[in-house]
Design a binder for these strands. Structure first.
Length: 483
RNA sequence: GGCCCCAUCGUCUAGGGGUUAGGACACAGGCUUUUCAAGCCUGCGACACGGGUUCGAUUCCCGUUGGGGCUACCA
């Protein structure tokens, strides 16, 4: 059986991480079985359509490295169109069929009547559901006539069972289901109707979707039976929660995956991390590159319980990817950020690519997010003024600080700034003054970089170069004198 | 209210009738060290509760509690 999996978002906003995690499972499943990954846009609600949302969604998939086999526009495919709004005639054909076969009926109940019905049921503490008023009326209607909606006839009595690949059979009483709308007053289908028909027509083998769809799955089962189609395999995946265990939302911070790009996360790290919420390979491996995830992925190992999005673990994983990445590659990932910070232009000027790459080499073990470079390595690109009081207390301590600074400045002035020469100049100064190396190293670090934390001192000085180092030490001496 | 889903360290999770309940993040301590990291070692830390079934339940069943979802002419 061909494995065909679809990712079917509605273009009502930006690509949410929870939605994207489902897409990751979809993509992994398709690639694992060498099947197809299909993008279908569920734009049946015209009022909620957000301009540009489709582009954002495709952009997010692309950024995360998920290639699409079939989809809207340029992507194409044999089962199009991939916008539901362009498939209306298909839905209408099924609508006619269901009416003719007595499995659906036209309803002209007004929104007001439905609201009142709901209100009175709520007041009477009854089940809230459509009262089937039009069910036996045999009203005449047609899709989009502006007067009627098409409702599905839920069988009276009995139960309906559907199969969830993770939870097994789930059975509900038909009495708890109500006659749902298939075609809206404007002629557009509802999600329930359109997705069943499309999954069937697009030969979808597995439907992966959030567990919030479980309650409506029995209705889908019934729709498949009514149109005489075999339902796809249903896999309801757990939701992703915020740290407070509430469904992930805006107030938990970023929910749009593209925001993670701006925050300095690598797509391969986010992909790996998201794949591990609600799924695991069953061994102790956690750093799993895309190919390994593809190889190891299986539906059976998807969890049934919701998972919390732990950004601290994402930070760690992102750092692990950064440290493992080739420095040249990492440098090119950093380039747009550094350009934005005004450190370089599009041609690496004024510093040159080699210099920038050397900085990255020294810093890659010291950052978890790309954006951290801005605070941690600014001194390689920009001069600074003054020092933090706490740093001063730590590194410019002691009455002899000026003499130590002056002494090492002279030693450095007579040094060719090779790594070994730098080290002997600094340590030689310490020996001459009969103090520990730290008494020289720490002040030089602060003077040269403006901060007390950073890469190894000698590598740092070498990269900064003699002119800048001497100038900064002079400036530091003047600053200390002025205190 | 009704219906449905879920339940192992703070978090992500492995495991499964008999285990010292394993790993990762975070946290704490140590090693290393010129700082910060990284790395390595150690520590802290969990089977929600109550009934069954069983020689034996964290594991299987039921219930309770807790959490989540659905209950639209949204998806």
């Amino acid at each position: 059986m061909a494995i065909r999996v679809r990712f079917a978002p509605s273009p009502t906003g930006l690509p949410h991480v929870g939605v994207i995690r489902t897409a990751i499972f979809d993509w992994l499943l398709a690639r694992h079985y060498h099947g197809q990954f299909i993008l279908r846009i569920e734009d049946t609600d015209r009022s909620r359509y957000v301009e540009g949302a489709v582009e954002e969604i495709i952009g997010a998939l692309k950024w995360l490295g998920m290639d699409i086999d079939e989809g809207p526009g340029q992507i194409g495919g044999d089962h199009g169109p991939y916008f539901q709004s362009k498939r209306l005639s298909l839905y209408h054909r099924y609508a006619d069929y269901l009416v003719e076969s007595g499995k659906a009926y036209w309803c002209d109940c007004s929104a007001e009547r439905l609201d009142e019905l709901r209100a009175s049921q709520e007041a009477a503490k009854q089940d809230i559901r459509y009262d089937n008023l039009c069910r036996e009326l045999a009203l005449e209607g047609s899709p989009g006539d502006g007067k009627h909606v098409l409702r599905f006839k839920i069988p009276e009595g009995g139960t309906t069972t559907f199969h969830d690949e993770l939870r097994g059979d789930i059975t509900v009483e038909n009495a708890t289901l109500d006659d749902l709308v298939l075609i809206k007053r404007d002629g557009f289908p509802t999600y329930h109707f359109a997705c069943c028909i499309d999954d069937h027509h697009m030969a979808i083998s597995h439907v992966l979707r959030g567990e919030e769809w479980i309650p409506s799955a029995p209705k889908h089962q019934l729709i498949y039976e009514a149109i005489g189609a075999e339902p796809p395999k249903f896999v309801h995946v757990p939701v992703i929660l915020g740290p407070d265990k509430k469904k992930l939302s805006k107030r938990h911070g970023a929910t749009n995956v593209l925001e993670y790009k701006n925050m300095g996360y690598l797509p391969e790290a986010l992909f790996n991390f998201l794949a591990l919420i609600g799924w695991n390979p069953g061994d102790d491996e956690e750093i799993l590159p895309r190919e390994e995830l593809v190889e190891k992925f299986s539906v059976e190992r998807i969890n049934t319980s919701a998972g919390v999005f732990d950004i601290e673990k994402l930070d760690w994983m992102n750092g692990a990817y950064i440290r493992a990445m080739d420095t040249g590659e990492l440098t090119s990932r950093l380039k747009p950020f550094m350009a934005e910070w005004g450190w370089i232009d599009g041609n690496w000027e004024p510093w040159g690519e080699d210099y920038v790459e050397s900085v990255v080499e020294l810093m890659k073990e010291r950052m978890n997010r790309l954006t951290e470079l801005r605070e941690k390595a600014g001194f390689f690109f920009e001069d600074f003024d003054g020092f933090d009081p706490a740093d001063v207390k730590k590194s410019f301590r002691g009455d002899d600080i000026l003499s130590r600074l002056r002494m090492v400045r002279d030693a450095l002035a007579n040094c060719d700034f090779s790594l070994t020469a730098l080290e002997s100049a600094v340590r030689g100064t310490a020996d001459a003054l009969e103090v520990g190396a730290g008494k020289i190293i720490h002040p030089v670090r602060l003077a040269a970089s403006g901060v007390t934390a950073g890469p190894g001192l000698f590598e740092m000085l070498e990269l900064l170069g003699k002119d800048r180092v001497l100038a900064r030490i002079d400036k530091a001496i003047a600053w200390v004198e002025a205190q």
